[in-house]
Simulated scan of single mutants.
Amino acid sequence: MLRVLLGGFLLSLFLNLCPYVAYTDQAQEPFPLASDAFSTTLFKLQDITNVKTVTFQNRNYPNDKKQKQFNFTIWNTNHKLQSFNRDISRYTGFKPSQLNQKTQISTNLCHDSSCVPSTIQAEGNAIGFFINPKDRSGNLINASSEYIFPPNYRLFKNFDVFEFSYELQVPYATGIAYTGVCLDLKDNRNRLPLWYCINVFDSRKNEIKKQGDWVQARDIGTGTPIIHGAIGRMGKYSSKTKKSYGPQDKTWRGFKSFGFSISRQQLAQAVRDTKSVLRRYNPNSKFNKLSENPSDYSITSINFQGEAVGNSSLGMSARNHKATLYKSRSRKPFGKKVRW
Rank of each mutant, 00 (worst) to 15 (best):
residue 40 T to R: 09
residue 41 T to Q: 12
residue 43 F to V: 09
residue 44 K to H: 13
residue 51 V to S: 10
residue 52 K to Y: 15
residue 53 T to P: 13
residue 54 V to P: 14
residue 56 F to Y: 08
residue 57 Q to L: 14
residue 59 R to C: 06
residue 62 P to I: 07
residue 63 N to C: 08
residue 67 Q to M: 08
residue 68 K to S: 15
residue 71 N to K: 09
residue 76 N to C: 11
residue 76 N to L: 11
residue 77 T to F: 07
residue 78 N to G: 14
residue 78 N to A: 13
residue 79 H to T: 09
residue 81 L to W: 13
residue 84 F to Y: 10
residue 85 N to C: 09
residue 87 D to M: 07
residue 87 D to A: 08
residue 90 R to D: 03
residue 91 Y to P: 08
residue 91 Y to K: 09
residue 94 F to M: 04
residue 98 Q to L: 14
residue 100 N to I: 08
residue 101 Q to I: 09
residue 102 K to E: 15
residue 103 T to S: 12
residue 106 S to M: 00
residue 107 T to V: 00
residue 108 N to V: 13
residue 108 N to A: 11
residue 111 H to E: 10
residue 112 D to W: 01
residue 113 S to I: 05
residue 113 S to T: 11
residue 114 S to M: 10
residue 116 V to W: 00
residue 118 S to E: 00
residue 120 I to Y: 02
residue 121 Q to F: 02
residue 121 Q to I: 11
residue 122 A to F: 02
residue 129 F to I: 03
residue 129 F to P: 07
residue 131 I to F: 06
residue 133 P to Q: 13
residue 135 D to T: 06
residue 137 S to L: 13
residue 138 G to A: 15
residue 141 I to G: 00
residue 143 A to W: 01
residue 146 E to I: 07
residue 148 I to K: 04
residue 149 F to L: 14
residue 150 P to R: 03
residue 152 N to I: 02
residue 153 Y to R: 03
residue 153 Y to E: 03
residue 157 K to N: 03
residue 158 N to F: 09
residue 159 F to S: 01
residue 160 D to I: 00
residue 162 F to R: 07
residue 163 E to V: 01
residue 163 E to T: 08
residue 169 Q to V: 02
residue 171 P to F: 04
residue 172 Y to Q: 12
